[in-house]
């Protein structure tokens, strides 16, 4: 069963005096129960807009969506009972303390006073905010504020969790902690939809990744499937002397598929290959014969970064041709 389903979502913003913005342009998305769906895309791709539609914050211009089988447009209040949300920007009351913020959220979920307080204490501990829990959020650092907001999304241990860039602004330790929290929730059956700029995060957490650009999904699959789409291994060597680059380039060219690429530093060369280990052996042997000294050498697998750049870079060009709509005020 798909716990999140979006069909043909469109959202058109018409800010006064400027061109219309197609924040969502026919977005389709299905997320099976108990999985983690990653939304990946460059700035302005429409990730936040998609999350806002699914969490009942805004109405789409066109299209429909259900969460846990409930229509988000027709019955937003029932949707709100089963979801937890942490938006891109921390939504906290600056004048309340960390504890008061979480207690308030519990009370507004109608958990009752005792249960709300118990849960607030538990979350404060879980997010390591015990020392700061009785200070107004106004004085919190960005990362602490963020953690209070994330805790707010977990107050009821919701069936479906929406996290818009959950680890942006967190230090590495807190980020790993957040990943653990998410993994635990998922093992308990929670479904998570998360957007992220960190491909490693999508790689680590997401069962399925949808790459979004221009308001629609341009590629979808597991991290491995997406990586496979842009080809196999590459060989990368880093020279000690930049003056050897010409000779090294010839060697790599002989064993690779296509033109070797030289980095800006002039010492790092890279080429796609079919059989990584075998090609590397030949390349290393020939470089040694030519007395070219190496700082580093290895086989590189494509990362999601490569996928991301290739997919979205390509689409961005197309977009420019298609152009934004004419000025609304021009007519």
């Amino acid at each position: 069963m798909n716990i999140i389903e979006a069909i043909g979502l469109k959202k058109i913003y018409s800010p006064k005096g400027t061109a219309k913005v197609h924040a969502l342009d026919g977005l389709n998305l299905t997320v099976p129960k108990g999985t983690v769906q990653g939304l990946l895309g460059p700035n302005g791709a429409g990730k936040t807009t998609a999350v806002k539609v699914l969490t009942t914050l805004i109405q789409p211009t066109e299209g429909s969506a259900t969460v846990a089988g409930i229509d988000v447009i027709r019955d937003p209040k029932s949707v709100r009972r089963v979801i937890g949300v942490s938006g891109q920007y921390a939504a906290v009351d600056e004048n309340l303390t960390g504890f008061e913020n979480l207690e308030m959220v519990g009370r507004l979920y109608h958990l009752g006073k005792a249960e709300s307080r118990r849960r607030a204490t538990e979350l404060i501990e879980m997010f390591e905010l015990t020392a700061a829990q009785n200070r107004p959020v106004k004085g919190f650092s960005g990362g602490m504020r963020r953690r209070i907001d994330l805790a707010g999304a977990l107050v009821t241990r919701p069936e479906v969790l929406f996290l818009d860039e959950p680890t942006t602004g967190l230090d590495p330790r807190s980020r790993l902690g957040m990943w653990d929290v998410i993994k635990n929730l998922v093992s308990d059956g929670t479904t998570v939809l998360l957007t992220t700029q960190y491909l490693e995060e999508a790689d680590q957490l997401a069962d399925d990744i949808a790459v979004i650009d221009g308001g629609k999904v341009i590629a979808e699959g597991t991290a491995d499937q997406l990586k496979a789409r842009i080809g196999g291994h590459r060989i990368e060597v880093t020279l000690i002397e930049a003056s050897d680059a010409g000779a090294a380039r010839e060697v790599l060219g002989r064993h690779g598929e296509g033109e070797p690429r030289i980095d800006d530093d002039g010492r790092t060369l890279e080429v796609p290959v079919i059989d990584g280990p075998r090609a590397l052996q030949y390349v290393l042997a020939e470089l040694r014969e030519g007395s070219i000294e190496l700082h580093d050498a290895g086989i590189r697998r494509p990362t999601l970064d490569d996928v991301f750049l290739k997919l979205t870079g390509h689409v961005a060009e197309e977009d420019q041709k298609a152009g934004t709509e004419e000025m609304e005020t021009a007519k």
Partner: peptide, 9 residues
């Protein structure tokens, strides 16, 4: 904070 309130039941 309004966004928080608006996603609560």
């Amino acid at each position: 904070i309004i966004d928080r309130f608006r996603t609560l039941p």
